[in-house]
Every structure is written in C-alpha cells, then in structure tokens.
Nucleic acid binder design. Structure first.
Lengths: 142, 142
DNA sequence: TATTTATTTGCAACATTGTTGCAAATAAAT
DNA sequence: ATTTATTTGCAACAATGTTGCAAATAAATA
C-alpha cells in the first residue's frame, strides 16, 4: 500500500506536471479534506509556510487543466474546488454527481454516489454538462 | 395595459422600496434582457449615465432581499442575476426552474417551464434548495 | 553524478471587484 | 411646503485575480 506522498507524485507525474512542494502540499490538503476548498482556504492553511498567492492560483488552474480537480458553482464570488474521481481527464470532466452545500457548517461535498437525473430541456436546446448543487443540512449537522 | 415604467413603480412600491432613477433603470434593463445579467453588465450599459458602482451593488442587493431578482450559480467569480417570477417573495425564493448557460453566446437563461426533478439524497441529508445549471447550446445558437 | 534545459516560483506592479462611513441629495410622509 | 426617512455618490479601503520577468527548482541528458 502506497503512502500519500507517493500517490500524489503519481498523480502529478501521470498528468505531466513536475512534482513541486506547492503542488504536493495543495494536493495533500485536498486529500485530507472531506469537502471542497476555495482559494482563501489555501492562503489560510498554508499561511506562514511561504507559498505565494500567485502560485496557489496557478497551481489550482493547472490542476483544473489536467482534470485533477473540478470547480463547483456557487452564487457568490467564491470558487469551490474538489478532487475529481479517477475517471476524469483534461478533456472530459465528467463529474456526474450531485454537490451538496451544508447551510450549517458551510462545507460543500461531492455526493459521489448520487446521480444527476435526466432533464428534459425545451426543443432546440442541447446539453453538454449539468451541474446540480443542493443546499440544506448535511448528515453531520442534523 | 400598463406601460413598463408603471409596472416597475408598482413592483418597487409593493416591495416597499422608494422609486428612484437607478432602481427604475436597472429593472428596465432586466425586463428588456432575455437572459441573466451580471454586475459588470450594468456598469457597461449604464456607462456615461452617472450611476455609481456602489449604487449598483446596493440596488442589486436590495432586489435580492425583496425577492425581485435571484442569483444563478456559476463556476467563475461572476454573479449572475435574473428576474424572479411573481411567485417569489423576500422570504421564499422558490425558483424551481432550470438555468441554462449557452456556451456559444454566453447568455444565461431561466427555463421557466423546465422543472427540477426530484433528487434522492443519501440518508441523513435534508434538502432546502436545489440549483440546476445546464450548459450547452441554446436554440438561437444551434 | 554533474551539467544542461525546461518548468515553476516569488516578487512587484497592476487591474478588477466588492465593502464601509458619511455628507449631500432625493423621495416619501406629514 | 416642510419635515423625515431613505438613497446616493464620493472617498477610501479591502479582497481577489492577473501579468511579466528574473531567480530558483525540477527534469532530462550526458
């Protein structure tokens, strides 16, 4: 059984990204976290550890480009990021699961086993991607 | 049949908001538009007409608070706003319709007649609100 | 392993977006 | 017409996101 560091190196290498401190650290945080993270979370969690704001932006963008993480839509100006499952690739982010935002703890979760139902669009509309974000109370807060 | 200005005054008054130039102008833009609008749209459309940035922020927030408009989630830092239908109120934004973002024209539309299907959440999760944003190609761009 | 090459990082500077307090202007109430 | 309450615009600030470039680091090569 591989340790986390090795897993992370593998993910980076298979995405053709060099293995650097920042990238390892950020992926570690994703793997430790049970929910989505946003940019400011990284600035907080990495505070004092001398990771530049700009580097965090660029790292997250690189992970998006390579299909390692995906964005979750929000109604505010924050951008939530979560790890993709293994099936995702750079070209095709098929994260066909529901996202859940808990109004109590504020956490956003990927409900990996909750499928997105088919939606009957009006005539003339073609769907490429469907995002579902449910808000409410999660099982830990109820 | 009432004209738009009168309709707008009615909406504002019934929400207990004073009828001011900025509010009328912004509601007009919403009524003219066939899709969602974001803050920067107003800065552009109202450019030269001496409406302060801050006033636009406060106007949009007031409209949200009164249930006149609602936000549509996005995966970027923009915030999209669209008119609510008459059934919405300050306490209850029940906009149970699907939102559609066209990848061609960039427009975001409310598909008012497309219902959001029921979603079976895992045990322990309680849903208060469900947001569905479909992206693809709209009927005008196909 | 040492050296070269390619990539990534941190810094500085800047652009954009969102917020707050307060006096002046405007709308509503009297 | 006057008073009262609300809204606006300005200034100043805070937070967030972007770009160019030299220095640092990782990967590739010898």
């Amino acid at each position: 059984m591989k340790n986390t560091k090795d897993q992370i190196s593998d993910i980076l290498r298979s995405s053709h990204l060099s293995v650097t401190d920042t990238r390892v650290k950020i992926l570690e945080l994703f793997m430790k976290s049970n929910g989505a993270l946003e940019h400011s979370d990284f600035e907080k969690k990495l505070a004092g550890q001398a990771f530049d704001r700009v580097t965090i932006y660029r790292t997250l963008q690189a992970f998006i480009d390579k299909g390692i993480i995906h964005k979750i839509p929000t109604t505010d100006t924050s951008v939530q990021y979560a790890l993709c499952r293994s099936e995702c690739s750079a070209e095709d982010h098929h994260d066909h699961h529901v996202h859940f935002k808990c109004e109590e703890c504020g956490n956003t979760l990927c409900l990996d086993d909750t499928d997105i139902p088919a939606i009957q669009l009006p005539k003339g509309y073609a769907a490429h991607n469907i995002e579902v974000v449910v808000s409410g109370v999660c099982k830990h807060c109820k």
